[in-house]
Design a protein around this nucleic acid. Structure first.
Lengths: 187, 187
DNA sequence: TAGTCCATGTAAGATGTTACATGATTCA
DNA sequence: TGAATCATGTAACATCTTACATGGACTA
């Protein structure tokens, strides 16, 4: 059995990146601070303990880097269990609560689709995502319609911004599904 | 001096809602679970301790509700210091890091603009927000352009989704600024 | 050789999650 | 009177933030 629940989004971001190629804690920090994956913290107090936990759970394994001179550094690689656990997380069903409170996590799951799962999984994910958006957006619209009269302007605008964001996501799923389909054809 | 840092977004969400009208912990939980402000947790283990901390800091004050029969419940109201602290938080400058990692918090700040600050503050906020978006979006586009070749399709699509989201926000600031302007004229 | 970057870590503190618990009140 | 809902709480646990610390290696 897999030891614990392994909640944290950061942990999965680390697993995904390590799955792409072997990386050290420092590499991961640099990645978070220098690419658009900046939404994750590059603080050592978050990353090094997280790597420890992943190693203790047997999802990654670290070994001293022997290349070059060189400075002491530990390169981490995914274990078979780590890869399986990542896939399990990626393949979970998409529920309303994911769309409402964890869009970032959904995007992270999708971002590593090609490396860990196949084109079919990617398509399945996008369709499920689109489906949840299609049931959530009307609920937001209904709430707006029945409350807009007694909402302050700023509150109403903030809500509208949220709705626009979800509608943009919805349109994105259509584009993404089309991209996956044409990718498949080109093979 | 204000005792502590008072980081948590949840704490400010509570302050904002209590500022609108006196509410109990249960009211707040219901609000989070039944409106689009669902991004906040409605769990008692988060809300009741947070209310305690706010009361201990002197930002809210609770008193037993005497209306009706009735069940014991504590109604919280903002204190003058609570209102001032909320305004301080709302009025902080908007920096790149807010746009990159704390859009939700920015939206929360804006959502309560009308109740806590004036139309001028709202406009100022929107312009600063727009400005930060205008400098961030090109950076994302540059990153995409120079990395798209060696990115997997899913990763590239995830990044594009992020960019689309920020572009939607940018267009929203224009709409919101226009709405504020016409609101001012109508007065 | 002095400063900067590489590379990893720890400690204190705050916050949030999950799960459990408790009683009172309303309603069927 | 039994079930559902109101209303508040606590305990254990994990995680993250902030700040500090260390030492080796490169470079000017």
């Amino acid at each position: 059995m897999v030891e614990k629940n392994l909640n944290s989004t950061l942990a999965f971001a680390l697993l995904g990146l390590i799955g792409d190629e072997a990386r050290s804690g420092y590499d991961l920090r640099k990645f978070f601070s220098s690419t658009p994956m900046t939404s994750f913290s590059d603080s050592p107090g978050a990353i090094y303990p997280a790597l420890r936990r992943l190693e203790r759970s047997g999802l990654i394994r670290g070994e001293a880097d022997s290349r070059r001179g060189s400075r002491r550094r530990t390169l981490f690689r995914l274990t078979a269990r780590g890869r399986a656990e990542f896939r399990r997380w990626q393949g979970q069903p998409i529920v309303r609560d994911d769309v409402v409170r964890r869009v970032d996590e959904l995007m992270l799951r999708f971002a590593f689709m090609d490396q860990f799962a196949g084109r079919t999984s990617g398509l399945k994910f996008l369709k499920a995502f689109q489906n949840e958006l299609a049931t959530y957006i009307p609920d937001l619209r209904i709430y707006l319609r029945s409350n807009r009269a007694h909402m302050p302007l700023s509150g109403r605008l903030a809500l509208e911004s949220g709705i626009l964001g979800y509608e943009t996501l919805y349109r994105w799923t259509k584009v993404a599904i089309a991209a996956y389909r044409s990718k498949g054809e080109n093979r």
